[in-house]
Amino acid sequence: MAIIEVKKLSKTFKVKLKEKGLIGSLKAIIKPKYKKVEAVKNISFEIEKGEVVAFIGPNGAGKSTTIKMMTSILYPDKGSINIMGLDPTKDRKKLAYQIGTVFGQKEQLWTHLTPYDNFKFFGAIYDINPSVIEKKIDEFRELFELDEFINTPVRNLSLGQRIRCEIVASLIHEPKILFLDEPTIGLDPVVKENIRTLIKRMNKEYKTTIFLTSHDVSDIEKLCKRVIIINNGQVVLDDSMENLKYHYLNKKLVDAKMKEKINLDDEEGITILKDKGYNLKLEVDITKRSVADAIKLLDPDKIIDINISNVPLEDIISNIYKNKE
């Protein structure tokens, strides 16, 4: 049975318009004008218990609006959301006990308190017995490797350390579902990898359902088995990561370094992406032509070095965004 059910969800915002300059500012005071922005249009999906789902899309696609409706921060205009049998618009408090949220660009920790005091605070607001909170803190201290800074005020922590603490604060009440809105934003590659490992471990050890938005394709590739792509407020793709790669990874990139210059033109199934004389980059549509055809076209005797790779997932996703616009 689905743990999250979203049906025909829509949300429209009223945005104030202002013409340029001082006169525009005055006009906006005297006679304000508004435009309606349809942030989310009639979207539906279901998520099963224990799934790790990437909910992605370009900026302004409606990701955060959807997450905020699911976490009872925003009220939908139309449609319904059912999370473990609860309606976020009516059962806000009950739902709070079942879910955890991390918004990478916002802070929920008390900056002048230490992570330890913060965790005690979050435990108390979720009505957890003090002895149980202590046990949970010990558990997370080990799991998330917090020993080094658990007694340092949050304001003195690095961004990576703070995000780790933000995640722990969201997990202290053992939520069944964790909503992560760009949790790795602004982090360096090592810390990102660290956070991903922790998210994976959390899903494995606590069977926490994870709903993740991120612009970082590595987050999606390494964590999620299912991808929902949203653009212009609509779901444009809802598929497994495996299918996404299978259906969309039908192009190969061939980078070749040549002994001598050769002149090539686009052919059916083979596109010249870059031609710098001795260095060539071709894209091969393997549904139409084979990689061997491309190599033959280059003349194998003239090749010094060659590299054959898949089109990066990032490009695939960008193409899906563009094609559905």
Partner: peptide, 11 residues
């Protein structure tokens, strides 16, 4: 937008 963290808590 920091209000987000205060309105989805159980208080």
């Amino acid at each position: 937008g920091n209000i987000t963290y205060n309105i989805n808590k159980p208080y």
